[in-house]
């Protein structure tokens, strides 16, 4: 009886696993098919390096270069803000905070991870956008910089939680050995604990980046949606995801514009795949 129950559960789990693989592979195949259709009509080099995205003009051009730059700029900015703060927070939570503070903070960070990104986007629109506009005295607060700040908030839970796990899993005996040699707590952390936790922290950052690049709604609301190459982090930008989300509703099915959006999707898919692959590599190394 118990045995058949086990077998049934195993079969269900196996099917779920297989199904998810099948889904991912078919999504990839679908993306590839539509994109290949697009590349037959539009030169792939012009697609990647083109500086203009005018899908609706008489002589349409589909250059995604500005969006790639936009995506990377927003993501990179968010990393610059989120990585040091996130890693410090993880260090504080796991090494310095007393037990009850540790528990409260871990709970709050995990809670923060569950806030839907549209909500963060909405809050950012009412707070960060006017703040950036007034503080830097620029014509609009809808900039890459605002997007970066907000994405930094969104990615912080991922970075804090996973880095904290990595730091926490460094065996106590290393800290003790270091302290017993006359090292201060900070020296033990910097020279031994952080070194040992580094693969895990890199994985945390990579998973964070993967999440940032794929993030859509919040950035669309906040970064100004201008598909030209940004001059600085204080210019409006548009990301790849925002482009797909904004235009998908308006395109005619099977039209070249429609296919072009799938090609953008393919580029995104490949980038996030690579980033997650690197994260997995470092997570594996941590074990």
């Amino acid at each position: 009886m118990k045995k058949t129950k086990n077998t049934i559960i195993e079969i269900i789990i196996f099917m779920c696993g297989t199904l998810s693989v099948i889904f991912v592979v078919s999504i990839f195949i679908f993306l590839l098919k539509e994109s290949l259709g697009f590349f037959r009509e539009y030169n792939i080099l012009k697609f990647i390096t083109g500086r203009n995205w005018y899908p609706d003009s008489n002589e349409p051009s589909f250059g995604i270069f500005p969006m790639v730059i936009g995506s990377f700029l927003v993501t990179f900015g968010a990393c610059i803000i989120a990585v040091p703060i996130g890693v410090m927070a993880a260090l504080y939570i796991s090494e310095i905070a007393p037990k009850y503070v540790h528990d409260i903070l871990k709970f709050l960070v995990e809670l923060m991870a569950t806030i839907p990104s549209v909500v963060i986007g909405l809050i950012g629109m009412c707070t960060i956008v006017p703040f950036v506009k007034n503080f830097f005295n620029i014509p609009t607060g809808l900039t890459a910089f605002s997007g970066s700040i907000m994405l930094a908030f969104m990615v912080m839970p991922t970075i804090v939680t996973i880095s904290e796990d990595a730091i926490h899993s460094v065996p106590w005996k290393y800290r003790e050995g270091a302290l017993a040699l006359g090292a201060t707590k900070w020296q033990a952390i910097r020279r031994i604990v952080l070194k040992e936790a580094r693969p895990g922290i890199i994985a945390a950052i990579m998973l964070g980046i993967g999440r940032l690049i794929g993030e859509t709604m919040a950035v669309m609301m906040i970064t100004g949606n201008s598909a030209s190459i940004p001059k600085s982090i204080f210019s409006p930008v548009r990301t790849m995801t925002a482009t797909i989300a904004a235009e998908m509703g308006e395109v005619v099915k099977c039209d070249i514009h429609y296919k072009a959006l799938f090609a953008v999707g393919l580029v995104l898919f490949i980038i996030t795949f690579i980033v997650n692959f690197i994260a997995d590599f470092f997570l594996g190394k941590n074990k």
């Binding site: 290393y174 050995g177 017993a180 040699l181 031994i192 040992e196």
Partner: peptide
Amino acid sequence: GMVFQRPNPFP
């Protein structure tokens, strides 16, 4: 100086 029960060289 102190030497522990299980060898704990740093990694």
